[in-house]
Design a protein around this nucleic acid. Structure first.
Lengths: 197, 197
DNA sequence: TCAAAAGTGTTTCGAATACACCCATGT
DNA sequence: ACATGGGTGTATTCGAAACACTTTTGA
């Protein structure tokens, strides 16, 4: 069921690019449908992926692909991988764009909620951030930054240590399950808006 | 030359949403073309606006408009207003989206270069930022933030004061004429990346 | 008793803001 | 002189990072 080599110039594909963390890696998946006549973008996207399993969705980019087809890509964040590996160069480029978008948003939004399980330890959350950002993150500072911003909440209970021992880890969850800006404007804030918390 | 009430479901419009500062206001302009068969998005955009007059262009959003037409919008930043007033609700929504995008990018990129003249005083630049951000900005702090980040450069010469006197203002220009991230990641920076400047 | 993992206390650092004060010009 | 707009010096604030140290478990 491959795509035609030269696409119909009137076709419009909706491409879901899904990212999830698996084994300390950012696992990409791609799913594509052709938008039917009169169909909304959201409806087409819903045919491409089970949107209910995505913690967050946002539009990524629209491009004319190498075969001439028009494609509108969406970024989806999930807790488990979804979709097929990328096939075309266009799809690989879209995945790069999706990674970049996620990387940027992780640092100034609560986007992590869409990748992490319902409750988790700081170490587990750290693995998610390391996988998505591509560089090391200190669990200590991660915890402090996200708690101060009110992104994380303590949850009752502790996780029992593994075979090798260690102190039991506290459990946390994200305070919100929708994307929120948590660090608006690093500079040039409106006057008199100095952290009134 | 209005648009058909119910658009051809195979048509694809490319819409340029141009923002410029005029009289202390963010003046929006809209220009639209239908993308021809096989035409690239960039080529269609170039038919919609004179891209050479835009300091910066980026894709904004693709949506199915109320009349059923598919439209891909671009945000353009210019020094002078360009294009017609918005006509449809869709176009007004796109302008809101463009304003939001600009507002966000102004604070962590050098996007101001695309709105400001070649050289300018800090007071003039402040007016641009106030118009784009919608809230007051201190000229003192604006200057320091942008100079420290290396976004602005001093330029020889001074601007003569007006009729009411006052100290002559120094002239500045933007160091780069392409969009650059100047404040990457407010938090969660890679370890050991503490401003090595 | 020791190793391992988790978490807190505390220091350091730097960017951004706020505000007082000095500078240069026209009237 | 003095009003006006421009600019610098400096103090304060605050978030983030770094790092030492304590806590809690399994072996």
């Amino acid at each position: 069921v491959g795509r035609k080599l030269v696409a119909d110039s009137t076709s419009h594909a909706v491409v879901a690019v899904v990212l999830a963390v698996e084994d300390g890696r950012l696992a990409p998946g791609v799913s594509r449908v052709d938008r039917g006549p009169g169909e909304s973008l959201e409806a087409a996207l819903a045919r491409a992926v089970d949107v209910g399993t995505l913690g967050h969705v946002e539009q990524l980019e629209t491009r004319v692909e190498r075969d001439g087809a028009l494609a509108t890509a969406y970024l989806g964040l999930a807790r488990a991988p979804w979709g097929a590996p990328p096939q075309t160069d266009d799809e690989r480029e879209l995945i790069d764009a999706a990674r970049g978008r996620l990387r940027a948003k992780l640092s100034y939004t609560n986007a992590g909620f869409a990748l992490a399980p319902e409750t988790f330890t700081i170490s587990e959350l750290r693995e998610v951030y390391v996988a998505a950002l591509g560089y090391d993150v200190s669990a200590t500072n991660l915890q402090r930054v996200l708690l101060r911003r009110g992104v994380l909440e303590r949850v009752d209970g502790r996780r029992a240590p593994g075979r090798t021992g260690g102190r039991p880890a506290a459990l946390f969850r994200f305070a919100a399950r929708r994307l929120e800006i948590t660090d608006e404007f690093a500079a040039l804030r409106p006057p008199g808006s100095r952290a009134s918390a």
